[in-house]
């Protein structure tokens, strides 16, 4: 549904986005993560046709936003970083205006505006001037606006920013509800949000892609090489024995022996699963394994790791 091929955007000689390629398939909800200034907003503006890329190609729902802007734009619902509102208009007037702008047929206009207000909880403030609304409500008007015209693709730049916790839950519910019938690309720097909503995550930093994977794989992949276990055994001896297992790269005692039990952390060699070997080794020595777990890193840890690695790598590259 959304395809980017080697997209770059240059501002005054500096790359805001550099050689970015990724795809979002129909019906997917994809999280777009990155620290502030990573190029998330620029990328979204390129996808929505607000600005053309300096290099590379974009395709949305089969149309190039530069070559065929009207066709591409009429298939995208876009919530910009700051909701594009006219404070002197009432909610109803504004949403009616946006429906016209998006070429919603007259016969469907009232229905779509009502539906958008209902979904975003705006029905009660329909006649209020947007300028008199709280930040949370304004954000909701911004989201309602993106739903008009029933676009198959939704691009949401920080959809829950400025909302209180209850509103955040409501908007997340709404995005989940939309997920089935829409292709959604949403940016965020709130990681649990992305974990809760998205099937897939694209992480960029300094305008470049640093990771792209399914949310669960991304959490698993970084933890792949690490196990935690509790063994009923004398601590030094069990550590020594574990180090002899070929699949094991390193052993660390996390909690020293208490009541005959020891908690250890084991690093596996890359690409290897050490669990069966550990089981047989400890069984042979008659040391019962009480617990064996593969702790999942949170997305937050993965994110921090990927994003903080980058400058070091860049430094090596130029050296």
């Amino acid at each position: 549904m959304i395809h980017l091929e080697h997209v770059s955007k240059w501002y005054a000689g500096r790359a805001a986005v550099e050689d970015l390629s990724f795809s979002v398939e129909e019906g997917e909800v994809v999280g777009f993560l990155g620290p502030n200034g990573a190029g998330k907003t620029t990328t979204m503006r390129i996808i929505t046709g607000y600005m053309p890329p300096s290099e590379g190609r974009v395709e949305v729902a089969g149309f190039d936003p530069v070559e065929d802007p009207v066709a591409a734009k009429s298939r995208i619902g876009y919530l910009p970083e700051s909701p594009p509102l006219y404070p002197e208009m009432s909610v109803l007037t504004y949403l009616t205006f946006v429906s016209d702008l998006k070429r919603v047929p007259r016969s469907q206009r009232t229905k779509q505006v009502e539906q958008a207000m209902e979904r975003t909880g705006l029905t009660g403030v329909r006649h209020r001037l947007i300028g008199h609304l709280s930040k949370g409500y304004r954000q909701r008007v911004g989201i309602a606006q993106a739903l008009l015209g029933e676009p198959p693709v939704l691009i949401l730049d920080e959809p829950t920013v400025g909302l209180d916790p209850r509103q955040i839950i409501e908007i997340r519910e709404l995005i989940r509800e939309l997920a089935g019938s829409h292709t959604v690309l949403l940016s965020s720097h709130i990681l649990p949000e992305v974990q809760a909503l998205c099937q897939r995550v694209i992480i960029i930093n300094r305008g470049r892609l640093v990771a792209e994977d399914r949310t669960e794989n991304l959490s698993a992949s970084k933890a792949g090489g690490r196990l935690e276990l509790v063994v009923q055994a004398p601590a030094p001896a069990v550590a020594q024995r574990l180090e002899q297992v070929p699949e094991v790269a390193g052993v660390r005692i996390l909690e020293p022996e208490t009541g005959g039990q020891v908690r250890l952390q084991v690093d596996e060699r890359p690409g290897m699963d050490a669990r069966p070997a550990i089981f047989f080794a400890l069984a042979e020595a008659q040391w019962p394994i009480l617990e064996l777990t593969r702790p999942r890193f949170s997305l937050e840890e993965v994110f921090m790791e990927l994003v903080t690695q980058e400058p070091a790598e860049a430094g090596e590259g130029s050296a």
């Binding site: 929505t48 046709g49 607000y50 802007p69 734009k73 009429s74 910009p80 702008l101 998006k102």
Partner: peptide, 8 residues
């Protein structure tokens, strides 16, 4: 401007 320029 972002609304106007991303509309058809």
């Amino acid at each position: 401007a972002e609304l106007l320029l991303t509309s058809p």
